[in-house]
Design a protein around this nucleic acid. Structure first.
Length: 744
DNA sequence: TTAGGGTTAG
């Protein structure tokens, strides 16, 4: 669009001069005189519209009342077209023509706001000495739409200073601004007080709902309820705000009661209400009510509404009915971004990660773009499956959609790289975050912890204070785990002692279990036992932790005591029997071992078989100890033999203490060679010959001591980095050393 | 010329 332009330009659009009538010629003459004109390129001849301009300019000279009548339709016209450029041109025109802005200022501000140009609206707003209440309200509402709560409140406060009384429109907007979690709550309460004084608190249902919503967001459901009860003419919006409030604070029964109350009062639920109440049912695992509401949705014809259907599939997922969740999705004609995301999240939460990834690919194929919710769920699927390559591709999506700085996507990326043993990549993702919170920092500390980077974890934990983030339960657990995995006993004890003094964080049994592990591993078993006795009602985890450290240090007596305690708390705990039988085997107490085995047989307890897997060429290969069913078994065994020979030259001695069966030494030695992790590594070395690719293996149980030693030698022999994730943690083997410093 | 509620991630 072209604003004021030269007369010659206009004439070039109207080549046939003889076609101009008298008025048109006069108009052209006039504009030629002043040398300016507002015109649009689509106008190819002098239109009545432009003639109006001519009259307008003539009228300006005669008086402003006529100017109002003439400018108004112009402003309306360009507001409809959402052309802020034209509005600005009109404003300039008014200024140059000497029309006082006071007359049409309100209209211009309204026009700017409708065009979404809040900056120009504000400039004009600030320059106007007198504004209609409607404009104050429109300005506030616009700031809220643009998520600028502080600015909205600024206008509200200036309004009060200027002696302008807020009305019901003001309050229905301003409470929303005061709901912003970044602001102090005092302001909201003060505004509520003023609304009471002005008699607007409950006489208007819009004001009432906004107040209910604000108190719900403050977590003050008692106040929300008090306001709702006072509103005389309740409606569906007010009741939905109340239901959502209860639901989001976990007060599911009260949410359901509010829903029933609403139906009893004859207020018809709508799609928003259904969408919320179904989430309540899902959160409380209330399948019965969930199904009844599903029936109600069908009866009332809300089957095609996306929001309640999305909530319906979430409800089924949270009740563990993943097939019903899939069925609900299938019936939806037009699933949107949120629906797809809900489906993917549901699959991940129900342990169907592979299907979640398939659905994600389908979503992309159908040109539905993912958001931070989607990508963080997909990343969690990848990290659960330890699929690094797939995860990297999802990370690329995160970058593509500009979400590297998002704390949710970020935490999931950190978690992925941490779980895949790439702490450096995790740190890069952490440093890319703009907004982060306690969860982002915890993810990073946990990544360090599981990969054995104790000092880095401690450093970040200390830095939390500078970042203004208060550590929570998870932060403490993660940093203690970091100390355990890196053998930083004193540091761990210091942190534990300081947290004990700090009344802000409550220590749980999990923290104590972590300390038992830390002390026990370093051989301070007596202290570990004393610590357990400090806990009120020690649980199975605590005693089993003590038992597992007894196994490491071969403390049979203390172990038997621990077993007794475990079996008192949890008589059928199979892990305990396995741990004790392993302890008997490793200390050579074969008679007790045999006895234990028969007890286990009687109890039908089975030790879960050791299993390792390796991801080579995007295919997962699984190995079990002494299992030669892999199609490439021959090559694997040849590679294995070569490796054993080479590592023996470097000084590897098989450690037969890790053979948990009674047999002669030679047999023990050969049985060690066929442990699942050795088979997996031999396969990976045979299959991938380049020196750069790191070998990543995963094991369902802990890596045995002999294998740990063997892998160290192998990393030196083949000159490659080997990363092993076992049930407890990561081991990074490089150049004959392991990141755990042999402390694990 | 101005106003309210919902569904997806640690």
């Amino acid at each position: 669009m072209v604003a004021p332009c030269e007369t010659e330009w206009l004439l070039s659009y109207c080549p046939k001069k003889e076609m101009h009538n008298k008025s048109q010629r006069r108009a052209i003459g006039f504009f030629a005189k002043i040398g300016r004109l507002i015109a649009t390129p689509e106008i190819t001849e002098i239109s009545s519209y432009q003639l109006r301009y001519y009259r307008l300019v003539t009228c300006v000279a005669n008086g402003v009342t006529t100017a109002f009548q003439l400018y108004s339709p112009l402003i309306r016209r360009y507001t409809e077209r959402k052309s802020t450029f034209h509005i600005k041109a009109i404003q300039n025109h008014m200024i140059t023509s000497g029309v006082p802005l006071l007359i049409l200022g309100d209209k211009l501000i309204d026009a700017y706001l409708k065009c979404g140009d809040i900056l120009d609206a504000r400039k004009l707003f600030d320059g106007l000495p007198k504004k209609h209440i409607v404009i104050w309200n429109a300005m506030i509402a616009s700031y809220i739409t643009h998520r600028k709560a502080k600015e909205a409140i600024g206008i509200y406060e200036r309004m009060l200073l200027d002696g302008v009384f807020p009305d019901e429109y003001t309050f229905s907007s301003i409470f929303k601004a005061f709901s912003d979690p970044c602001l102090v709550r005092e302001g909201g309460r003060r505004a509520h007080g003023l609304s009471v004084v002005l008699g607007l608190e409950v006489s208007n249902v819009f004001v009432g709902s906004a107040l209910v919503d604000m108190y719900a967001k403050y977590g003050k459901m008692r106040d929300a309820r008090l306001v709702a009860d006072r509103v005389v003419e309740k409606d569906v919006v007010l009741m939905t705000a109340l239901i959502v409030g209860y639901s989001q604070l976990g007060e599911d029964i009260k949410a359901l009661e509010a829903f029933c109350e609403m139906i009893d009062d004859g207020i018809m639920a709508n799609e928003y209400t259904f969408a919320s109440i179904l989430i309540t049912c899902g959160n409380s695992g209330d399948l019965n009510n969930g199904k009844s509401i599903h029936g109600l949705i069908v009866r009332l014809g809300f089957e095609s509404a996306v929001a309640p259907q999305t909530s319906l599939l979430t409800m089924y997922s949270r009740c563990g009915l993943i097939d019903d969740c899939l069925r609900t999705f299938k019936l939806l004609a037009n699933p949107n971004q949120v629906t797809w995301t809900s489906l993917i999240t549901s699959l991940v939460q129900n342990g169907r990660e592979e299907m979640a990834l398939t659905k994600f690919r389908k979503m992309i194929r159908e040109a539905i773009s993912p958001n931070s919710f989607t990508l963080s769920s997909v990343l969690r699927a990848c990290s659960s499956l330890a699929m690094l390559e797939e995860g990297k591709q999802v990370h690329a999506f995160v970058t593509k959609y500009g979400l590297d700085t998002n704390k949710y996507a970020g935490a999931a990326i950190i978690d992925l790289y941490g779980k895949c043993g790439s702490t450096d990549m995790a740190r890069l993702a952490f440093d890319a975050l703009i907004e982060f919170d306690v969860v982002s920092v915890n993810s990073m500390i946990y990544s360090y912890a599981q990969n054995g980077f104790g000092h880095e974890a401690l450093q970040l934990f200390d830095k939390m204070k500078d970042l203004g983030i208060r550590p929570n339960n998870v932060s403490i657990l993660s940093v203690l785990l970091a100390c355990t995995n890196a053998g930083l006993v004193e540091e761990g004890c210091q942190i534990f002692a300081s947290i004990k003094k700090d009344s802000n964080v409550e220590l749980t049994k999990e923290h104590y279990a972590c300390m038992v592990d830390l002390l026990g591993r370093s051989g301070r078993l007596e202290e570990a036992e004393i610590l357990i006795n400090q806990v009120r009602d020690p649980d199975v985890v605590l005693w089993r932790t003590l038992l597992s450290v007894c196994r490491i240090h071969g403390k049979v007596e203390m172990a038997e005591k621990a077993v007794e305690k475990v079996l008192q708390v949890a008589p059928e705990d199979d892990g305990t029997h396995v741990l004790l039988s392993n302890l008997y085997a490793s200390t050579g107490k074969w008679s007790q071992f045999v006895k234990m085995k028969s007890t286990m047989r009687e109890m039908r307890l089975k030790k879960s078989p050791a299993m390792s897997w390796v991801d080579v060429g995007r295919e997962v290969h699984t190995f079990m100890a002494g299992d030669f069913s892999h199609p490439r078994s021959r090559e694997i065994l040849v590679t294995l033999e070569e490796l054993v020979e080479k590592v023996k030259i470097l000084g590897y001695i098989p450690d037969t203490r890790f053979v948990l069966r009674d047999m002669d030494e030679e047999k023990k030695e050969s049985s060690l060679y066929y442990h699942s992790e050795k088979l997996a590594i031999a396969f990976a070395i045979w299959k991938t010959t380049d020196q750069i690719t790191k070998i990543r293996i995963f094991k369902n149980l802990r890596v045995c001591g002999d294998c740990h030693n063997w892998i160290k030698f192998v990393s030196k022999v083949v000159g490659r980095e080997i990363i092993a994730r076992d049930a407890k943690r990561f081991h990074h083997f490089k150049g004959g050393l392991c990141s755990c410093g042999d402390y694990w």
